[in-house]
Design a binder for these strands. Sequence first.
RNA 1: GGGGGCGUAGCUCAAUUGGUUAGAGUACCGGACUGUCGAUCCGGUGGUUGCGGGUUCGAGUCCCGUCGCCCUCGCCA
Length: 638
Amino acid sequence: MPLFDQPRNGRVLAMADWQRTHTCGELRDSHIGQTVTLNGWVLITRNFPNQVFIDLRDRYGLTQVVVEDSDKALFDLTNTVGREYVLSVTGVVRKRIAGKERSDIPTGQVELEAKSVRVLNASPPLPFSVTEFPDEELANEDLRLQYRYLDLRRRSIQQVLMLRHRICKLIRDYMDAHGFLEMETPLLGKSTPEGARDYLVPSRVFNGEFFALPQSPQLYKQLLMISGYDRYFQIARCLRDEDLRADRQPEFTQLDVEMSFVEREDVLGVMEGLAADLLDKCLGVKLSLPLPRMSYKEAMLRYGSDKPDLRFGLEISDISDIAAESDFKVFKDCVAGGGVVRGLCAKGAADKFSNTDLKPGGKLSAFVAQFKAKGLAWMKVEGDKLTGSIEKFFPDAVKAKLKERMGAQPGDVLLFVADKESVVCDALGALRSHLGSELKLYKNWWDEKADYDAAEEKAAKKEKRAPKPFVAKPEHFQMLWVLDFPMFAYDDEEKRWVAIHHPFTAPMDEDVDRMESDPGTVRAKAYDMVLNGYEVGGGSIRIHRPDVQATVFKMLGMSIEDAKARFGFLLDALQSGAPPHGGIALGLDRWCMILAGTTNIRDVIAFPKNQKARDLMTGAPATVEGRQLKELGIELKN
RNA sequence: GGGGGCGUAGCUCAAUUGGUUAGAGUACCGGACUGUCGAUCCGGUGGUUGCGGGUUCGAGUCCCGUCGCCCUCGCCA
């Protein structure tokens, strides 16, 4: 791949004398003797009475520049340059003296003997360090976000953003090869009642009216199907005005996909092929296809989550029937009242948790309390006996059943939550994830890489060779499809049914008839792609019949008039030759996180917002001038 | 809106039970030094302990309030 412009139309592009002929990651033995020019930033200098060494860096790599004291003016100038100066250095590539080569960097066999140095720009001492030495702690994140342009100079961030580019490129190549068209959809659209809070944009021309920024291109891509564009994709920015998390930003990127004349299998097949491609080409991990599948119901029962992390076991056991046979009032009453009792068996963890951790108000019971669980019951397995304060309510026969059901062995802790099913699933699902990381039941691939790299770097240095790169293992990537989500959930606060996926998701054919009579049991043709406990994609087959769409709106408490006012164009379009269609969206930022080995979405976005959704660099959001508000017909209350 | 954690030099951190002039590493400045590669060695500058109030003979440390950042619950069709 040529980095520099080649002669065009018989004309050689003029090149200023300071412009680079090579990058800082390019020079090798084969360049020895050549006169070259490098442009880059000073990472660090090492000054001696007779020589100055400069590590010159750009996004391609790092090259050592040597300035000898034979040219006094050049030498004096070089002694004044500091970290992060931008230099143009012209010189001769030469072999490093014997025994002084570096095998750990690609340019380590050579160095650039400077003949002239031009300071393209100076730099004051920075608010934090751009170097990344092994034991160097990063500066506070808010400081780094304030000076994001400096933070982005760090090698590890540059590598992540270059990886992000590669991921996007792989996606485009894959989608193109599979016949998909990349198409754009509007940013200025219409607010929709369901779903996340919209970001609104006031209209100057129509005072009092607002555009909404898209939560996703959902409606547009369906309309493109109706228009006959068959296979569409877009790497689309989506905006949701909701509170942030470590893996959630107010603006984020999705790979948005829609296909016509397809059923669920077609969408899953195309997308798992893409997932395998990404893992293979980014990390060398071969995913075995087809991916495992699990129903929503099974995922909730066994893992308490619709995005289970399958890198470790610690499955949930339902012991409602056994609990009913005990004399423990809390359990019995719960089951009698229609609730469930379920538990986890934490292998060998009996000595990891003190009774203080376990008892009411302790760490673990406080943890489940977050999820509305009223308490955490527990027993320890000591020898062949069960111990703990509730042990006495369980007759021996019941204890035996319990141990068998949960696979309890000496040294294990049994943890129980009794409540209505949704609370039990939330609490135990979260507790399972919590214990999974707390008890180190699995390893993140990047933790394994960090261990490997540290050891390999030492070994390589000792043996004077280049370190061998880490190869991730397939077991670090546990991916599956979660299928057969319920169509509706009852919202206690709003006292109405809401769509679990979105209102355009098709119900399963065999469940359509129950939509009005028993909405809670209707399953949707929806699917989520789950990787290591992250929801990395989700989609559905859409409704393509106007009557079914109208019924769904009705179930969501929307009158015909409401639906027509809000989605009239869609209802009309569905009556105008809509093909069966469906699609999916992948969370591109989350994919980048996982492939880059980070747990923070800000690490994979060049200019992210902080947790309060403020851009610490620009200061946005900010007040605007009165004139601007006036044009928009907006008056501030205070 | 709720819960938790954090805030000390430009940066990363320390400071015993509330007790002397708030220290160290690094960056920065000056000096020494013939091949370094996070060079090394010597010296120096650098502090409203986030902010405001209170308790106390005495507060970085305790109390109240407030601001900021991170994690999390709610929220995210």
